[in-house]
Design a protein around this nucleic acid. Structure first.
Length: 571
DNA sequence: ACACAATGCAGCC
DNA sequence: TGGCTGCCCTTGTG
């Protein structure tokens, strides 16, 4: 049975009066078929329907779920109006086709460019980049403009380094725990640097959750640290009982995790709300341990430095991105404390020398086609860069000492949804010594046995291949926030209001990178409805370890795990 | 079952 | 430049 995800509103009825003037809307009618008037089979069908319907106007809320348009067929003179009904595409408003969910599969509007790679001429379903078993995530064609050194590096050095470094491993099977206590969407996650089971989570309301995911009863939520979106958290490198957090309320808070007592290190809106034009928010934040600095950046393009010893702002704010544009992220190089990476709404990621911070003084400007959601140095050597941009591409620069003019690879990946959800950010696996594995949530859904699911993807940034995808048939929401544990084999995901902890079922249950990608499906679908939202998380967390929405212990049943099965998705 | 809002950005004038 | 509109797979609430 085909179930629409959501049937459309009342049928939109457009009645065009018969006039002598040329109406542009009537030429929209047939698209390529030129100026009307042959009546297609479809139209005839619809006409019959209309006659049955008596008045010709569909009843309000008739539940048909199709948008229909009454199109008058023009005739010369004052001939009676002939009316035909047509299906109209919700996306482009043109007749002849429909876009939307058919069961758990989304049908693209053929008039629009591919939803995934943004190129015209094909739909998402036919996109060569489509995340499907036959294709995988294809890397963009590598430019053939390598210089000889780079060529030698690629051909000789990289294979050798791979021999001495173990390839990353991925779990063979996973289990999942769910916890709900955020009342707004999750915006950031951070693992404790020493305590392996401690996870911090921030939400859109500014609440900070501290929880032990082995003993889920031990959780604390601090609700008064910030008044709106908690965008970033960092542990104090010299005292891991304290965290810095930046928020859209324009403040940096310095919070004791035991007591929840916090002090404000900075406030960009000391006079309170004076309207949206003057309100400033802090998005990017990082800590530079060597220099004893907290770095934050605001929605006006400015970078601020706070001395961690005095807890006071130091120096002057520096314009690091286009004036008036939001700086989305900051990352200090893990090896070279003088290097800073920033990214912003001006479509750039920029590399800075901390010793020469001044407007326009960046070392490199990495161009993107859209807003850059995140930019990270690789976690161990700090020589690679991974960015996530809203043009549905992950970009990798293989070496900051090499050619920085254009990325070494672009990987098409669906993550371009920017409102209503926390922006997607691809992150490195901090445990992967080869610095190739990255994790990122996926926006576009995949029809998994009749359920539209949004997996979390593990991508080999060296090849662009999708090596594993994690999903649970009972988790139908999108998980834009993902964090891999710095030491353990744990993935934490943040969705709308829930947190998920994914772990390999068995400690030793790992496989090295293989040609075929792993599909890690956790649990079985609760066969409720064959539509998209099978097993809505809001009502169905009973099958998961953890808590239900009231914070009580829910039924503790081990999930049954399916995996390594070849995917059976019908499109 | 459906309407609606919260919400960020791009493109237009 | 700034204000306005529109937007293709959201998600929870009323």
């Amino acid at each position: 049975m085909m179930t629409r995800r959501r049937s459309s509103a009342f049928p939109k009825v457009v009645i065009e009066r018969d006039t002598d003037s040329e109406e542009s809307s009537s030429s929209d009618d047939e698209g390529e078929d030129g100026p009307e008037p042959e009546t297609s089979e479809e139209e005839e069908e619809e006409e019959e329907k209309e006659q049955e319907g008596g008045e010709g106007l569909p009843e309000r809320g008739s539940g048909v779920g199709k948008e229909e348009t009454l199109v008058d067929v023009k005739k010369k003179g004052k001939a009676p109006i002939t009316i035909s009904l047509k299906k109209v595409c919700k996306v482009c408003k043109k007749p002849g086709h429909e876009a939307g969910f058919k069961g758990a599969t989304y049908i693209d509007c053929p008039m629009k460019p591919c939803f995934l790679c943004k190129m015209p001429g094909h739909t998402t379903m036919a996109c060569p980049h489509r995340v499907a078993s036959e294709h995988g995530v294809a890397p963009a064609p590598h430019r053939n403009t390598q210089n000889p050194v780079e060529y030698v590096f690629e051909r000789q050095l990289i294979p050798r380094t791979r021999q001495c470094k173990p390839a990353y491993v991925i779990p063979n099977q996973v289990s999942c725990a769910v916890i709900r206590y955020h009342s707004r969407r999750v915006t950031c996650l951070e693992f404790h640097p020493r305590n392996n089971n401690l996870l911090l989570s921030g939400d859109k309301k500014g609440q900070l959750g501290v929880w032990d995911f082995d003993k889920v009863s031990e959780k604390v939520v601090y609700g008064t640290i910030h008044s709106c979106i908690l965008n970033n958290m960092r542990f104090n490198p010299t005292n891991d009982g304290m965290i810095y957090s930046s928020s859209s309320d324009g403040t940096i808070s310095y919070t004791d995790l035991e007591t929840g007592i916090s002090s404000s290190l900075m406030n960009l809106n000391p006079d309170g709300w004076q309207g949206p034009s003057s309100w400033r928010m802090l998005y990017g934040m990082d800590v530079n341990a060597e220099r004893g600095l907290v770095l934050v950046a605001d929605t006006a393009g400015l970078l601020y430095l706070v001395d961690t010893r005095s807890n006071n702002e130091t120096g002057r704010a520096v314009l690091i991105h286009k004036k008036g544009s939001k700086v989305v992220g900051l990352h200090c190089n893990p090896v070279q404390p003088d290097l800073l990476l920033s990214c912003g709404n001006d479509h750039f990621a920029r590399i800075w020398d901390m010793r020469k911070l001044e407007a326009g003084g960046s070392l490199y400007n990495l161009t993107h086609k859209r807003v850059v959601n995140s930019a990270y140095f690789s976690p161990i050597s700090g020589t690679k860069i991974l960015t996530t941009a809203q043009d549905n591409r992950l970009r990798i620069w293989d070496s900051i000492f090499g050619d920085m003019d254009s990325p070494s690879r672009e990987i098409v990946h669906s993550h371009d949804f920017n409102r209503h959800l926390t922006p997607f950010r691809a992150e490195w696996d901090p445990k992967d010594s080869s610095e190739t594995l990255a994790v990122v949530g996926r926006y576009i859904s995949e029809n998994f046995n009749g359920t539209a699911l949004h997996p979390i993807d593990f991508i080999d940034t060296g090849t662009g291949q999708l090596v594993a995808e994690v999903m649970d048939p009972n988790i139908t929401t999108i998980s834009p926030v993902n964090k891999l544990h710095p030491r353990d084999d744990v993935l934490a995901s943040g969705s709308s209001r829930s947190l998920f902890i994914w772990r390999p079922k068995e400690k030793s249950d790992f496989v090295e990178k293989k040609e075929e990608r792993k599909i890690l499906v956790c649990g079985k679908a609760e066969k409720k409805k064959p539509g998209k939202n099978v097993g809505n998380e809001s009502e169905d967390d009973s099958d998961c370890d953890g808590f239900n929405s009231k914070g009580k212990r829910s039924k503790f049943s081990k999930k049954e795990l399916i995996c390594k099965s070849k995917r059976k998705v019908k499109h």
